[in-house]
Nucleic acid binder design. Structure first.
Lengths: 345, 345
DNA sequence: CTGAAAGCGCTTACAG
DNA sequence: CTGAAAGCGCTTACAG
C-alpha cells in the first residue's frame, strides 16, 4: 500500500565519506570503528576527527550483515508488572557499559506473537536475546538458543542446555516470609498464589514460591495448617475469590501473597469489608514494588533485586556473545523489606 | 573484549537457497516476498512452497540496506506510567495489520540516552518512529523528523512542521472534571498538578490540563477560588507537600489531580490522616489506569483512550511512511469514568 | 601499518 | 512474466 522507495536516506554519511575526508581507505575507517588491530595512532586520530566532523554514524543494518549489531533484544510478556522497569534498568546499565543498545519487544500475552517477536529480533541481527518470564516450552527455548545467544530471567527451567537462566531464589524468599510470620507468633498462615494454566506452569516463579512456602511451613511444624489458594489472573473473578476467602470461617491470621498486586488487592478488600489491618490479618507480598510503599498499604514484601537480575542476565549474555557455551543457572538472594502490613498474631 | 566472529549464522537460509529450491531467480523470490508486480501465480506458488518448506525468513538487516525493514520504533521516556501498555497495544494492533513489527526503546529519563536511542533506531533502519511524551525540544524533534518519519504522542507542540502529534484533548478532559464537580455542588475545587522543570514544559500534558481547569473554573464563575498546586516528581517530597495541603485550614472540598498516581497517593494520605472520603474530600484523577479500580480507591478518572492514541499514531506513521509529508495534529476526545471517589459537596 | 577486493543478503532498475 | 547485474554500507581475510 505504500510505494515510495526509501532505502538509505539520500543524505546519509557513509564510511566512504569518512574515508575520503580522512584520506584513508574504507578498511582503515572500519578498523578504527571497531577498535581493531593495526591502526597507527595518527591514522586513528585522523579518522576520528573526520567522523566527528561529518557526524558519521555507522549503519547498524550494514554492520549486521557481516559483523555484529551491538544491540540486544529483551522480550517481555507484558508490561504491567511493576518489577520490570528495574529489570530493564539493570540490563541497560550493564549493556551500556559495553556499548550495547537494548531494544524491547512486547509479547502482549500471546504465545505466537511472542515467538514471532523472537524471530523478528533474530532477523534484525541482534547479537543476543534476554527473555523475561517467557511462557514457551523448554524445547522452544532450546531451539531459539541454537539460533542466538539467549538468557532467560524469572523462569525456573531445571536444566537448560544452550542458554542461561537468572532467577531470584524464590523458594528462599517464601521461606523468609514464613519465618517472619512464625517469629511474630502466627501459626495459621495461608498462601495466595497464581493459577497457572499452561503446560509449562512448573517453571513459573509462583510455583517456586509455593515450594518454599510448603517447605518452611513443614520446617516450622505447621504442615497441617498449610494451604495454598491459587487464584485466577482475571481481576473480577479473583476479587470474588478473595472476598469469599476473607469471609470464610477458617480465615487464617496471616497471608503470604505470591505478588504485591494480589496483596494490595487483598488489603483493599479486607479493609473495605471492615477488617482492621494488621490486627485482623497480616499480609506479606512479593516484589517490593512502588505501590507497596503507598500510604495505607505499607506492605511488607520480598525484594527480589530486580535490577540485580537484569544486570546478571546482561553480563551472562555478553559473555555468551563473547563465546561461552556452557549453561549457567544463576540465583540471586532476595531480601525482605519490612513495613507495617503484618504484625503479631 | 569479544573476538568470536558471528555475522550471519552459518545455517541461515537465504533468498538464494529459496531461489535454487524453487528453480527461479533470486529477483523472482524477492518480488514474491514484497508482493511486487509481475510474478505469475504459478511462480509465486512455487516460491511460496519453497519458503514454507525451507522455513525461510528474510534478513531484516539486508532488507534494511536497500528497502524497508517493516519495523517501527517506539521510544518511551519511562515505563512506570500505567497508561503506556495500552498505548503500545494500540500501536501494535494497528501496525501488525500492515505486517509491521514494533520495537521499543526506553529513555530511562535521561535526555542524552533518549536521543542516542533515536539515533540507534534510525541506524537500525527502522521505517519510522513514535515517541511518547518526549522531553526534547521542538527543534530537536524537527531535526529527527527530517531523518525519519516521526509521530509524537502526548506532547502538545503548537505547530509541528515535519512530524505529526497525537494527543488526548487534555483541556477538555479537565473541563469535564470541573463540570462534574460543579454539578455535584462543589465550588472550592483545587487542582494538583506536576511541577515540570525543563525548558519544554509548555508542551507537557499537565499544562494543557491546567489550562482546561482554569478555563472551566472561569466559565463556572469560580475563578476566584481556582488554584493550582504543582507538586514534585519526587515521591517523599511530594507526600510531604500533600500532607500539608490536606492539613491546611483552607483545604478545598474537591481536588482534581493531573494523574491517577497523584490522586491515589492523595486518597491514601487523606484516609490515613483520619479523613472520610468522599464526604470530607472529593478526588478525581486522570488516566483511568488499572489501580483506579482498586477496592478502597474507586477513583473517578478521565480516560484518555490510550489504545486509541496508539492506534491513531500508528496509522499516521504508516501514512507518513507511505509518503505523506504535511503535518497532522490529531486530538482525541477523553471520557470520564465515574466511580465513588467523589460525591456531593 | 595500510588498502584493494570480495562478500554479507537483500532490492532495484534494466534487459530480454 | 522473468532474470542477470549492480549496489546498499559495512567487515574480513588477504596482500603489500
Amino acid at each position: 500500500m505504500n510505494e515510495q522507495p526509501r532505502g538509505t536516506r539520500p543524505g546519509r554519511i557513509t564510511i566512504r565519506d569518512v574515508a575520503a575526508d580522512a584520506g584513508v581507505s574504507v578498511a582503515a575507517v572500519s578498523k578504527v570503528l571497531r577498535n581493531a588491530y593495526g591502526v597507527s595512532p595518527a591514522l586513528r586520530q585522523n579518522v576520528l576527527t573526520s567522523i566527528e566532523k561529518l557526524g558519521y554514524r555507522p549503519s547498524t543494518a550494514a554492520r549486521g550483515m557481516r559483523g555484529r549489531t551491538f544491540t540486544i533484544g529483551v522480550v517481555l510478556v507484558e508490561m504491567g508488572n511493576p518489577f520490570l522497569p528495574d529489570v530493564i534498568a539493570g540490563i541497560s546499565d550493564a549493556c551500556g557499559a559495553d556499548g550495547y543498545k537494548v531494544l524491547i519487544g512486547l509479547g502482549q500475552a500471546q504465545l505466537t506473537l511472542e515467538e514471532s517477536l523472537l524471530d523478528s529480533m533474530i532477523d534484525h541481527g541482534m547479537d543476543g536475546l534476554i527473555l523475561v518470564a517467557p511462557r514457551m516450552s523448554g524445547e522452544t527455548l532450546e531451539a531459539y538458543a541454537r539460533q542466538t545467544p539467549l538468557v532467560v530471567i524469572a523462569h525456573h527451567e531445571p536444566s537448560p542446555n544452550a542458554y542461561d537462566t537468572v532467577n531470584s531464589d524464590d523458594a528462599a524468599g517464601a521461606q523468609m516470609v514464613v519465618a517472619e510470620l512464625v517469629a511474630a507468633g502466627h501459626s495459621d498462615i495461608a498462601m495466595i498464589s497464581l493459577l497457572v494454566a499452561d503446560d509449562n506452569s512448573q517453571t513459573h516463579v509462583s510455583v517456586a514460591r509455593e515450594k518454599g512456602y510448603l517447605k518452611a511451613m513443614g520446617d516450622a511444624g505447621l504442615e497441617p495448617s498449610a494451604r495454598i489458594l491459587r487464584m485466577t489472573g482475571d481481576k473480577d473473578l479473583r476479587q470474588a475469590q478473595m472476598r469469599s476467602f476473607l469471609s470464610a470461617p477458617d480465615r487464617p491470621t496471616a497471608v503470604f501473597c505470591w505478588s504485591d498486586l494480589f496483596a494490595i488487592e487483598l488489603i483493599g478488600l479486607a479493609r473495605s469489608s471492615g477488617m482492621n489491618l494488621p490486627s485482623d490479618l497480616s499480609v506479606i507480598g512479593y516484589d517490593n514494588s512502588p505501590p507497596a510503599t503507598m500510604p495505607l498499604i505499607e506492605l511488607t514484601s520480598v525484594d527480589q533485586n530486580a535490577r540485580g537480575l537484569g544486570g546478571a542476565a546482561a553480563t551472562a549474555l555478553l559473555s555468551r556473545i563473547a563465546g561461552r557455551t556452557n549453561p549457567q543457572r544463576l540465583m540471586l538472594k532476595p531480601t525482605l523489606a519490612h513495613r507495617t502490613s503484618h504484625g503479631p498474631a
